[in-house]
Amino acid sequence: MKKALKTTSFAILGSALMAGPAAADMKIGITQNNVGVDSYQTTYEKAFKEAASKTDGLETVVLDAGGDVARQIAQMQDLIQQQVDAIIIWPTNGQAVVPVVRQAHQAGIPVIITNSNIADAGQEFIAAFSGPNNITQGEYSAEMMCEALDGKGQIVQISGQPGYTTAIQRQQGFEQRLAEACPGVEIMETQPGDWNREKAQRVMENFLTKYDKIDGVYAGDDNMGVGALNAAKAAGRAGDIAFIGATNFAVGYEAMERGEYYGSVYQSPVDDAEAALQTAIDVINGKEVPKLNYFDTPKITQSNMSEFDKPVF
């Protein structure tokens, strides 16, 4: 049987969320980043709703900011007015949401950050963070790039959405670890792909026009990584380039199966959603939880991918 991804800080989840009496008469609100932007967030929302439906006595208010910071702030304010027992927020912008997170804290409502953390200025106002360690993910991607290029070469980087904590942290972890592990690998240029496959493809097309030699591409997630791969294939240059991503999407897994994509970081949106909900329930029930609740996101490459189930997103 293939590996089922486990959490490091929780016992996920099944029986825990189905233990109804511990979660009775709770109301939890969640405002998400942008459900429609990719299949990870779509799968996350579905898993969150499913887990909540199995918890007796739990009412949820499930909102989506659609990538709009102002809309997310308004949703947070609405949840504060509703006096929910806890708020889960997947921030559209880790800095911009700090004031409204402070408002919830001042109203006595615990805030759980999910998936992508908020800025340091807001850490004192949150009950917990639940999600992946994005700096570690960037480090893992750097290590895979070093392996793929044997420690030397010229690469380009396609980052996520500017101002978005996950994008910032993955880029930070990647660049720092790359400099440590293989200083012979040079990042020639970094451009944002905004988590969008089509935009990443356009960014890569520009890179291919600008640079005669590209040995590797690091993309902040596989959705963008496959966009870059598609551009390189169209230009007849894919065979010369090592593609490394993060958040292993099904399309990335399939590209690995075809031998076109070197590696990524395995991350489950189901674990992500369930961990966030369980953290909120534990906080409401007065349980002591770690401030940073990370779940496992191991490296996945062509050499070990048979140990992992194909992502469902």
Rank of each mutant, 00 (worst) to 15 (best):
A22Y: 07
V61L: 03
I30N: 02
I244F: 09
A128Q: 05
A24L: 11
S130G: 10
A104S: 10
G20I: 03
K54R: 11
D212W: 00
A167N: 03
A280Y: 00
T42P: 02
A235G: 13
P162T: 02
G160Y: 06
V97C: 08
N206T: 03
C146W: 07
K233G: 01
G259E: 06
T60V: 07
Y266N: 08
A167H: 01
G286H: 07
D64W: 01
T301F: 04
A242W: 09
G184M: 05
L79M: 13
F207S: 02
G57P: 08
F249T: 15
P91H: 03
S268V: 07
E186M: 05
S141D: 03
T43S: 15
V97L: 14
Q191K: 11
Q103H: 05
P99A: 09
A250D: 14
N134I: 04
G36I: 11
F207V: 08
A19S: 14
V101L: 02
M256Y: 05
V100E: 03
Q191F: 05
Q103S: 14
K233A: 04
Y218H: 08
I281S: 13
L58Y: 00
L13G: 15
L63Y: 00
R202H: 07
N34S: 10
D78A: 10
M204W: 05
P21V: 11
I281A: 14
Q41T: 12
A119H: 10
V97K: 05
E147I: 05
G184W: 00
V84F: 01
M256Q: 05
A280F: 00
Q137F: 00
G67C: 04
P290M: 02
D296Y: 08
A86H: 00
P311K: 09
T165S: 14
Q302Y: 05
Y261W: 13
A24Y: 07
A47V: 02
E147C: 09
L277R: 00
G138H: 07
Q302M: 10
Q137A: 03
Q154K: 13
K210E: 06
V61S: 04
K213Y: 02
